[in-house]
Amino acid sequence: MKGNRGLIYGIIGLISLGFVSIANLNLGSVPIPLSDTLKILFQGSTASTEYTWEYIILNYRLPKVIVALLVGSGLGLSGLFMQTLFQNPMAGPYVLGLSSGASLGVALLIMGGGALGISTGNLLSSHWGLPIAASVGSLMVMLAIVAAAFRLKNTMKLLIVGIMFAALTGSVVTVLSYFSSSELLQRFVFWTFGSLGNLSSVDLKVLLLFWIMGIGIGLFCLKNLNALLLGEKYAQSMGVNVIRNRWLVIVATSFITGSITAFVGPIAFVGLAVPHLVRSFIPTSNHFILVPNVMVYGALLMVVCDSIAQLPGSQHILPINAVTSLFGAPVVIWLLLRKRKLNF
């Protein structure tokens, strides 16, 4: 019964995603008729369309929509995995401190050089500087969390360690910000706004590779995650290798969140809000039903947020991170008010 409901909502979500994505491709500062957008999208170059339009759609807007799909689906899935792993409805990729780690890496690159008297100019001006710094930051936090996960058998303690890491890296970023010049600080702040449109084709391929690896590992864990709905002790009694499973979920989440944060900036709220949003209309905990829906609706939410961020009809683009929070925070508050209790 719930399987059917999951399937119906999944199909509705996919169809909506198709429409919203095409609408998003049609949005932007350069007005392009819908018919031409569709022609460029489905037939490639045609004689009747302008080359500039083709260039804008295929080289700018389409990659941006693909990034939005990867980011939304990836963060939604990471949020769901974290909530089950930690048996906590408040868990999300942010709780593990992965995004904070990425922020620290970027902050060190942009502002640390000046504060420490080291020149980071070359790396900073290169195309790879920010993603590498963010990835290294995420990876360092991931390794620290994995080391803690190896020592700590209790997931609540691990959750607290994650929050402590976030606080720790946050305070280092604050200290760096305090000592850095206004120009460098501005540059860092721009990165924290998040952007779906700054990826080169190589960046997109790297992001896709990490996304596939993360999702692949995650799909391997779905049955075990269902057993974890009864807690680690029951899961263990049913034959789950709890420690190995925890490692796999953490690695999958790190791959997804780390790569997304590196290339797109810290995107808040999607990881936390999407699983709750999906559970509000598909009331199940079965990961085989939840995962496809969380990915579809995460992607849908991200494309919608990106469309809003473009402020249709204006020349301005809002920071994507601000839009996801503006949208995500009321959703979570609405869910809290509507439901007596949030579940994982």
Binding site: T84, Q87, K223, N226, A227, L229, L230, G231, K233, Y234, S237, M238, G239, V240, R279, P283, T284, S285, N286, K341, N343, F344
Partner: peptide, 30 residues
């Protein structure tokens, strides 16, 4: 081992979205 021995623990924690049948079905996990 999970096919030989099962347990019923004190203080169960569980996802509150689970129905009775879904929870019992998890017993077939091994």
């Amino acid at each position: 081992f999970a096919k030989e021995l099962s347990v019923v623990l004190t203080h169960p924690s569980f996802s509150e979205n689970l129905t009775v049948k879904e929870l019992v079905s998890l017993g077939r996990f091994p």
